[in-house]
Amino acid sequence: MIEVQNIHKSFGDNHVLRGIDANFEPGKISLIIGGSGSGKSTLLKCMVGLHAPEQGKVLYNGEDFTRMDFETRIPIRKEIGMLFQNSALFDSMTVEQNIIFPLEMFSDMSRNEKIDRANYCLERVNLAGRNKLYPAELSGGMKKRVGIARAISMSPKYLFVDEPNSGLDPETAILIDELISELTDEYQCTTVVVTHDMNSVMGIGDYILFLYKGQKWWEGSNKEIAHTDVEELNNFVFASPFMKAAKERF
């Protein structure tokens, strides 16, 4: 369980987050949605401690993560898997080395066990056999998937994914959504996904947080989102004529 309480974050004069409260529950997929530049990635980075919020707290199972120092954070960090918006793969390492890197640092697995684990993770993201490629040799969508494989190599209890299916074809995108949903069930992890993708919103959104003007403008489930009359949310979700027509059919 992750609790976010009254998070404020600014960059200079740009007050990006203006008091966000939210609870993210284990075994569920929580989505953060909102327009480009609305602070979704910033919120995610505040939650994992990459940005220090000026105000507010982030609690992991009741423990205040924001006030912890580097050493006390380590046990929680080992349980976090994260996919960055631009993948952030280590470009001096091969795909396989990227995935086993956290295992090398923190596990006592043998060499073969680690490689087996890497192969398993690669299979899950449909990239079996690409072990020896370097990040520079991958397409954008493949990088995303390797990023996911790296995020799950330690069987995380907290999974953060920033736009997992931007840049993927619809079929692979759905595959990734299914994977995220399976992993959440398997590890009973607290999963937080930042997304723009309406298929994901409708498909896997157990809990949806809509950011607008630096605030939590709306929260609810994918069942509720279709019937909301919050104008800003409707404008966001049903922006395209196609989606508008779909809404009218509901």
Binding site: K45, V48, G49, L50, F70, R73, I74, P75, I76, R77, K78, I80, M82, F84, N86, A88, L89, F90, D91, F101, P102, M105, F106, M154
Partner: peptide
């Protein structure tokens, strides 16, 4: 590594 967030990725893993 800093501007491509690779350092952030290390930090997230709990690596110094």
């Amino acid at each position: 590594m800093r501007v491509t967030e690779q350092i952030d990725a290390l930090e997230i893993m709990g690596i110094n």
